[in-house]
Amino acid sequence: MANYSTNEFKPGLKVMLDGDPCAILENEYVKPGKGQAFNRVKVRNLKTGRVNERTFKSGDSLEGADVMDRDMEYLYTDGEFWHFMATDGSFEQFGADEKAVGDTSNWLKEQVVYTITLFNGSPIAVTPPNFVELEVVETDPGVRGDTSGGGNKPAKLVTGAVVKVPLFINVGDVLKVDTRTADYVGRA
């Protein structure tokens, strides 16, 4: 991969830092009137999702990271890997391990399309769509007629995720959930 100098650290650029692929989020040029110039850079580690700040001398460079986002449909899990298939017509399949799937396992549903981040050709992260529709498998019986949304109770979804739902929701209902906040949005 090419090397990128601090002045090329634009938001979105993927670079290697301490052996991990990272995305540049922000890059601030810091130069006193007298003295050395620095770049204060905010990066997201694409493996862990963690955001860090790092300072470089202006002109330092980092190796680019071979990182690509691809849309893929979730197929199934064999217990060790979660299998996805590219939706670009190539029918290419990829197995993502537990580390790559992370909390997204709460929102996995067959035939739904996810964004898979590939690093050197292997999945390192799975990003769900903002909303998914999932069935309730366990919750206290619904309170008939209560559609006011005044109270709430926990409901377990088919994926194992637990979300807070209004009292009228029943087992078997299909819910629309915001994957960014794990909030109940409505009945699908």
Partner: peptide, 23 residues
Amino acid sequence: HCDFRGELDRDGWLNLLFSHCIE
């Protein structure tokens, strides 16, 4: 304080700390 990994001379370190932690 600045997660800087390179090498600097004394004035370089002072400049780094001043511009990042004090200014």
